[in-house]
Design a binder for these strands. Structure first.
Lengths: 205, 205
DNA sequence: TGGTTTGGTTGACGCTGTCAACTGGCTCCT
DNA sequence: AGGAGCCAGTTGACAGCGTCAACCAAACCA
């Protein structure tokens, strides 16, 4: 009677899932292995058999967010023109950021728990970034500074703009009344920044 | 004999300063009011007379970083041409980010402790952002999307690019050998991103 | 069969933030 | 002058946290 929950057969899986629930419920700073154990009806040390430390379970949650994010980017609607495809990628990025604010904040708004110690997590992050860089690497962009092409620099450039845009749109969304769906004023800002991106990248016709 | 330190006359000041030292020494996650008290040779509750909670002292440290940062932006070399001035601002931004990585990470890489609860801190942050927005607001930029001018959107655009650039340059700097000064490969990346920014903003001549 | 591995348990330690009660000194009215 | 009251600091307690250590039972395999 002490515990009506059925103990999940795969505790590791259950821990990761429950960790995300806790973060959603109470914020990332309230994530603790003890809370995970408690909710799973298991002793406070059980999770230690599967995760070295509190940071390791957080790293696992974040790694899955990166995977999910990368899948979302890859699932963008297919179009032929590279610039249109890049724009579709941008929209997929914004779509994910606004549709999964929790995961988004975990990936980009949380001080990553010592990246050097969590190579698996960083691999997933790199994979997502490479999706963008590889897309850009094959494009004929407007030259800049008469220098050599720099796909990594350009990917960084695009990524940063999207990140900043996502940040402000999230704030605007949160500050408005608690309605679902993107706030009405989001679209113009998005068009504006995407437009500037186009000006910077598209070759002059 | 218990404590050879002379107790500082202004404990609040001393706390803020010591907090920054702790963050520099051991990382922001190790900042605790008790550690501050200990280092100052004062009881573990003394800081509570000046700060409501651990987050409040962190907010104060961050607020000062924003002040320092804004001062740095304002102290950029004066030039007449608006675009050159904007570029100088960008350089001042990067200069601060690379020269004060600790403060920079505090401002932009730390989950701000519930901004709503620390309005003083947010004011300083807003002031720094407004420096950029006001600079941009008076400029004749290349029009985008045939829409109305949007200085806030453009400021966000510029800010984001600089932020992304700062992020990657910090990483590159850290991954190299422990030399002081910017790494040699920083300059090209910086020129590249700044160049893209120019392409996006400068009216076609 | 018996030893090892795996995954769980309980218990303890020291750290943290924070609440509560106390104290000594300073200021400020009357 | 003298008491009221505040201010800045004190000690002491409490619960929650991560983590180490020891223990234990079932599964697995030689």
């Amino acid at each position: 009677m002490a515990n009506t929950d059925k103990r999940p057969p795969d505790l590791k899986e259950a821990c990761v899932r429950e960790a995300l629930v806790i973060i959603a419920d109470e914020g990332v700073e309230k994530l603790s292995l003890r809370e995970v154990s408690r909710r799973l009806g298991v002793s406070h040390q059980a999770p230690y058999k599967h995760f070295e430390s509190r940071d390791h379970i957080l790293a696992e949650v974040i790694a899955r967010a990166y995977e999910d994010f990368a899948r979302h980017l890859e699932a963008r609607p297919a179009v032929a023109d590279p610039f249109d495809d890049l724009e579709a990628m941008g929209r997929a990025y914004m779509d994910y950021a606004l549709g999964h604010p929790l995961q988004y904040r975990l990936m980009f708004g949380t001080p990553l728990p010592d990246p050097g110690r969590h190579p698996a997590m960083m691999e997933k992050a790199q994979y997502a970034f490479d999706l963008l860089r590889d897309r850009i690497a094959t494009m004929a962009l407007r030259p800049v500074n008469a220098g050599p092409a720099d796909p990594t620099g350009d990917a960084l450039f695009v990524w940063s703009c999207l990140h900043g845009l996502a940040g402000i749109l999230q704030v605007k969304k949160l500050s408005g009344p608690a309605g679902d769906g993107p706030r009405p004023e989001a679209a113009p800002i998005m068009r504006h920044v995407m437009g500037r991106l186009g000006l910077a990248l598209r070759p002059v016709t």
